[in-house]
């Protein structure tokens, strides 16, 4: 399978605090990869490092040649003093053909919003407009930072369905950050649990039974998703560093790319 973008040992620290530590993973063509993790776990930092928006201390990002990216940022704060219709907002993405805004608008079910001012749109509507803009250049890879934030459950479900449809129709990959476990688990091919480092990774079925997952999201959240528990092989101390559990021997499964050899934050 072709790899579109890959991180190799990415480390980012700001003011002496390590936000992400030696993170390696890749996004294969056609897959939906979701990064989940607690607040402050470095999800957005990882996306920004991949996009080249922040400096990395170590490691590198590898992109497939001629990769076209679509990006949907977490927050959009347009001053109300700027009169801007949704159509114009989409067309700000660069040199695109005149019919493109209409086409991506249809794809995201927002044609009725295209001629409204951005300042009157609701949070959910803005998310869809952002998604439409990210499609304007026919990207090979969509990078979405919390695409369903500020939406009610119905809106979230509809958005994830829309994402799946877009992926199926276009055959593009999706790399997104999310904190809604249920929806993520349904609509994704691969999950990466991030808390400074990669705690566990694999298919949704694999990850939901991983002890590191229960550790990250608490027993209750994990119980709702997991069918069974098994022994942890490491835990986290207060600042998120990995502390190996003493006397652990047997480990029930091995995930692809599981990062258990990790030595903890410096």
């Amino acid at each position: 399978m072709n790899t579109l973008i890959a991180a190799h040992d990415l480390t980012v620290s700001i003011d002496g605090r390590t936000l992400i530590d030696q993170v390696s993973f890749s996004v294969p063509a056609g897959e939906i990869v979701t990064i989940i993790g607690p607040n402050g776990g470095g999800k957005t930092t990882l996306l920004k490092a991949l996009l080249g928006l922040i400096k990395t201390d170590r490691g590198r990002v590898e992109r497939a040649p001629k990769l076209t990216l679509g990006y949907m940022p977490q927050k959009l704060a347009i001053d109300r003093a700027l009169p801007l219709t949704a159509r114009r907002f989409i067309r700000l993405s660069g040199r695109i053909e005149s019919g493109t805004a209409q086409r991506v608008g249809e794809e995201c079910d927002i044609t009725h919003l295209l001629d409204r001012d951005m300042s009157v749109l609701s949070g959910g509507e803005i998310q869809r407009v952002l998604l439409a803009r990210s499609l304007a250049h026919d990207p090979d890879l969509l990078v979405l930072d919390e695409p369903a934030q500020g939406m009610d459950v119905t809106g979230q479900a509809a958005l994830f369905e829309l994402l799946a449809r877009i992926r199926d129709r276009r055959g593009c990959s999706v790399l997104m950050v999310s904190h809604d476990l249920h929806l993520v688990m349904r609509g994704t091919d691969r999950v990466i649990c991030l808390n400074g480092h990669i705690c566990c990774t694999g298919g949704p079925e694999e990850v939901r039974v991983d002890p590191a997952f229960a550790e990250l999201f608490g027993a209750r959240a994990a119980d709702q998703l997991a069918l069974y528990h098994h022994h942890h092989d490491h835990t986290h101390d207060d600042d998120g560093s990995v502390v190996p559990l003493e006397g652990h021997g047997h480990h029930g499964h091995e995930h692809h790319g599981h990062d258990h050899g990790h030595g903890g934050a410096p």
Binding site: K48, L51, G52, L53, L69, Y71, P73, L76, I78, D79, L82, L84, F89, L92, S93, G94, R133, H137, V143
Partner: peptide, 14 residues
Amino acid sequence: LAITVHEELAAVEG
């Protein structure tokens, strides 16, 4: 205009 609306989005778009 693109920078005014969202600087990082504009940067990703080139």
